[in-house]
Amino acid sequence: MTGQEGGEAGDAALTEHALPVSVPGWIAALCRFFAALGGAVLLAMMLMTVASVLRRSFLGAPIPGDFELVELGSAVAIFCFLPWCQVTGGNVLVDFFTSKSTPRSNHLLEAAGDLLYLLIAALLAWRLFHGGAEMREYGEQTMVLRIPLWWTFPIILPAMLLLVATCAATTIGHLRKARA
């Protein structure tokens, strides 16, 4: 399912994805790093939940705050996954109406789509910055463990900025392919 990574037959695009384009190495490496970070958080979240279930079953008490840890972890993981999904062309699209068009025009269309995503990602990142700042200002925290909500933002915001950069890179990649 890793798009252009595709080693095995089953890893070929499992659904209609963007056409592959190449991006600068440092973007790909950063995307990979954030995906690994998110993956580690997801794995930790899974292990924590299993431990909490075991603790509840055998000791009669779950890990305190297990639910809110899942909520925090889920947010971090998903934000970290977004750039990786974009760089591997993993966002699903409908290719029925353009399947007969030339690669050139399809690359142009996808360049436009990625530019749109870039603008939206930049808008969301800008707003999230303010959202995080307010959470910090108002001292919002989780209920049981009282973890300040803004603590996840030093990971979330860079992930969003990386998403913006990735969209820029894939837009340029599609334009290059359209010209070639």
Binding site: T2, G38, A77, F81, Q86, T88, N91
Partner: peptide
């Protein structure tokens, strides 16, 4: 292999959550 699974999960999950 675990890393492969996590990367695959990353793509599918991000795709679903964007939608």
């Amino acid at each position: 292999g675990i890393a492969d699974c996590l990367r695959g999960t990353a793509v599918t999950s991000a795709m679903i959550f964007l939608i």
